[in-house]
């Protein structure tokens, strides 16, 4: 046993050196930049041929977090026989100043498209802008209920589609076949 103890000095020294080294560990932090890809508010704005524009938005203050988005704030009304010009706005409001993601979408118009799907009959939404290659983009649109449309609630689903990774963007597409960046549904009423 004495031999063991005597021989153990070298490892003890090594142990001490190692412990000294161990104290220089990395500074642990939690610091995700977080904001870069968040869209926390989607706003629809409808402008009638004459009169003031109305808008409504849906918020998701935690961005991609687990808390569900808020209820729609503001009401959208589409009286029969009137055609509105519309615009969608994507924003990241979790940062200051607020980031306008719509500008990003316009910059990368060739890779994006906004699809609008309306429930019920009589209401149509038609996109009016094009990307650099002449395909629909959908940041602006016209919306309206045909004359004689029955009154009632409708929903307008706004889907921001992101083309990447091999799925080609085609002018004829009627739904998103690539990646979904935004998928949110507004309610609108035909009075």
């Amino acid at each position: 046993m004495h031999t063991l103890i005597r021989r153990s000095r070298a490892p003890l020294a090594l142990t001490a050196a190692a412990v000294a080294l161990m104290s220089c560990k990395g500074d642990s932090i939690t610091d995700p930049a977080g904001e870069a890809e968040v869209i926390s508010r989607v706003t629809l704005t409808l402008t009638p041929p004459s009169g003031a524009a109305v808008s409504a938005y849906i918020d998701d203050p935690d961005g991609n977090g687990p808390t569900a988005p808020s209820a729609q704030v503001g009401t959208l009304s589409l009286p029969a026989g009137t055609t509105f010009t519309g615009a969608v706005r994507f924003e990241n409001r979790t940062v200051t100043p607020v980031e306008n993601i719509t500008d990003e979408v316009k910059t990368e118009a060739n890779d994006h498209r906004v699809f609008y799907t309306v429930s019920g009959t009589g209401v149509t939404v038609t996109t009016t802008d094009l990307d650099g290659s002449g395909r629909p983009l959908g940041v602006t649109f016209t919306a309206g209920a045909a004359t004689g449309t029955a009154a009632g609630a409708r929903t307008i689903r706004v889907l921001l589609c992101h083309y990447d990774g091999g799925v080609a963007k085609t002018a004829a597409a009627t739904s998103c076949t690539a990646e979904t960046d935004i998928d949110v549904t507004f309610t609108a009423a035909v009075p």
Partner: peptide, 20 residues
């Protein structure tokens, strides 16, 4: 046996927190 570990979390998104 003894071990000390530290983790740094950066990047755009959160997945796990930093830890010791």
């Amino acid at each position: 046996s003894a071990m000390i570990q530290g983790n740094q979390t950066r990047g755009k998104a959160f997945l796990i927190p930093g830890f010791d």
